[in-house]
Design a protein around this nucleic acid. Sequence first.
DNA 1: GCCAACGTTGGC
DNA 2: GCCAACGTTGGC
Length: 137
Amino acid sequence: MAFWLFKSEPDTWSWDQQVAKGEDGEEWGGVRNYLARNNMRAMKVGDRGFFYHSNIGKQIVGIVEVCRESEPDSTADDPRWDCVMIKAVQPVPEPVTLEDVKGAPELADMVLVKNSRMSVQPVTEREWAIVCKMAGL
DNA sequence: GCCAACGTTGGC
DNA sequence: GCCAACGTTGGC
């Protein structure tokens, strides 16, 4: 299983909205960046991801799961864009802020730190374990 | 609200 | 195929 991180501005799409979708999940549409898209194409059903609030909060607030592999993005009028569907699994007991991540030497290589503009990014197994621990899981 | 970083577009 | 211009993201 692989691990990922999904970024969203809570003004646009928040964790609470994601939770409200329940088991149906939500199409992670609107991504118009090749690297981010390629990351989604690499995802498998059952992969896990962090749900990160950018701009407001700047923290990891929950865990999501990929529930459908990449398909054409219904919000795009261009066939080159596609996206996965994700569903909320559980909130994290203790949100992990960007500051927390930057303060952890073992997380210095996280894409979140190194390339803050990547909206869908891979997380290593090691990083996943460390962040989960910090989140009280 | 500003601005730096960076991805994308389009002219050549 | 290069690169300048432009638009967008996201931290501060």
